[in-house]
């Protein structure tokens, strides 16, 4: 019981982190039609920039400055790269971001090398806030929850209560009309791209100390973010939130369960083979749920797409 409560909290932390990444991506995707493959690379840039800043000015300045720098870099990429490629169609755009992801990874290795970076939690948050059973809940995790929720509320407010948000929502559905009304749609695009990548950068800043800061961190998280927004439904902020939390809890509970597939096989009336190495199903007999935890989201995505191609909350085709 205690473990379930702990898992709920951990899943929430991971899910909200995913949300910070997927919120920006889903906005960018639905507005510009760009599958931004470099999104996770901006997340990585966030962590690296923050590490660099934190060595001079401490963690908190890194938290403030790094996302802004990443956002500006993102806006620059939109302005000078993506906008140029946009005229060729969506596939070249995607390949552009693909190549960009490669370049960013190489850039990071060029500057900071290939090793793990000692980017750690600030000392002020490096303690156990409370314990459930014998499991400590680190103060930093609670801090992550608050930051993510704060970002979500801010996004929701901007998108639904402000003029800029209205323009963005309108530009999502009817870019031409919005342009004819005299709004500068390219500027909106650039802004959305900048804010989206900035959010990814922020996620990197706060996740770096928890999940590790190393050149593979972008690839590790890259495709799962797509899975999230596709399951949630493209363009839907609520969908991104629900899917993020779903995936967060799903992977967390899968990892902490001790379910064995042998139980299913036994329930099906099969006999456990005496000589395991001779059985063609030997891998199934020893398989446990934690072993396949990280690929569950992909299964879910394929299922969702086959049954409901517009995702859980989407209104139009992916």
């Amino acid at each position: 019981m205690e473990l379930i409560l702990v898992n709920l909290i951990d899943g929430l932390v991971y899910g909200l982190l995913l949300f910070m990444l997927s919120a920006g991506l889903t906005l960018i995707f639905s507005m510009m039609g760009v599958l931004n493959f470099a999104h996770a690379s901006f997340y990585m840039l966030g962590a690296y920039f923050a590490y660099q800043i934190s060595t001079y000015m401490g963690f908190w300045m890194g938290l403030l400055i790094a996302p802004v720098v990443v956002g500006i870099a993102g806006a620059g990429v939109e302005r000078y790269g993506l906008r140029r490629v946009h005229q060729y169609g969506h596939v070249p755009e995607l390949i552009f971001t693909f190549g960009l992801a490669l370049l960013i990874e190489e850039f990071v290795q060029f500057i900071w090398g290939n090793s793990q970076l000692p980017y750690n939690e600030p000392a002020i948050l490096d303690f156990a806030l409370f314990s459930i059973g014998s499991n400590d809940i680190a103060a930093y995790k609670v801090f992550m929850i608050f930051v993510s929720i704060g970002i979500f509320l801010a996004l929701l407010y901007v998108l639904t209560r402000t003029r800029v948000g209205m323009v963005i929502q309108a530009a999502l559905s009817y870019p031409r009309t919005v342009e004819n009304l005299g709004h500068n749609v390219p500027l909106v695009f650039m802004g959305v791209f900048g804010v989206g990548t900035g959010l990814a950068g922020l996620a990197g800043v706060i996740a770096g100390p928890q999940l590790g800061t190393f050149p593979g961190m972008a690839i590790l998280l890259g495709s799962i973010v797509f899975v999230t927004i596709v399951i949630g439904g493209l363009g839907s902020l609520w969908g991104a939130l629900v899917a993020s939390l779903l995936i967060g809890w799903m992977t967390t509970f899968a990892a902490s369960s001790s379910f064995q597939f042998a139980d299913i096989l036994l329930a099906l009336g099969m006999e456990k083979p005496a000589e395991m190495s001779e059985s063609a199903l030997r891998d199934l007999w020893t398989l446990t749920l934690p072993q396949i935890g990280p690929i569950l989201p992909y299964m879910l995505m394929v299922l969702v797409l086959v049954v409901r191609p517009y995702g859980l909350f989407g209104k139009r085709d992916a």
Partner: peptide
């Protein structure tokens, strides 16, 4: 379906078989 649905299913299936 073509487009993104196909692309994402291919990603999912690819990841599943790779795993």
């Amino acid at each position: 379906r073509a487009g993104t649905v196909f692309a994402m299913i291919s990603l999912g299936v690819g990841e599943l078989i790779a795993a």
